[in-house]
Amino acid sequence: MGWPKLFVAGVIMVLLALWELACRGLDLPVYILPPPSRIALVAVVKARLIGPHALATAMEIVAGILLALAVAIPLAIVMFAWPALERALAPFLVASQAVPVFAVAPLLVVWLGYGMASKILMAAVIIFFPITVSLLAGFKSCDRDLRLLFELMGGNFFQALRLLYWPWALPHFFAGLKVGVSVATIGAVIGEWVGAQQGLGYLMIQANARLQVDLVFAVILWLSVMGLGLWSLVGWIEGRVVAWR
């Protein structure tokens, strides 16, 4: 472990220790602010309660990521192939992100119901934008001389896309995907807050209503671990796919 990682780990340990000492020293009630040791304990002890909800949220997030990819990749390609289309679609793309997801969530629940569909769509709406923008930027950043070389070699657009643009844009794509998966939990959890029968967002609302603040924090811990896990998984795949870097 290098010194930057040791430094970060040290800072986190110090902050957790201060939090723990503050809770115990000030004798704060658990329903106001539980100490980190209690949160960790609840996260483990209540794993059988949290686990199924986490699985539901994870499925929504993964499905949201897949849906976002299914939309973002073709969209980036067509916008790259037809710059006029990019100019036409750009305002709608920006508008889709300018509207707070909290505003859209109730509508999606009304339209798609309390099941997973509304949460998947919510996650996808949040994820697809960074992927589309990053991938498009990657395509556009392709070396001018390489583009010229492909033209001179007689390559058509689809050949250039497969052999040049796509591999060239992969690091940008993964950068966008990492941002996407980092915020994917937001879409799913907000959807569950608005209306759901399962999921970590649903469990948080239930625990909050019962003043089980330690359980709320434990769920947040699970969400953080899921987010970190997804982020690391994307990083691992990137390392495999973009091994030539």
């Binding site: 070396d143 390489l146 001179l152």
Partner: peptide
Amino acid sequence: YMQQKDLLLP
């Protein structure tokens, strides 16, 4: 066409 840069795809 050949340039100063090798333009090999990494």
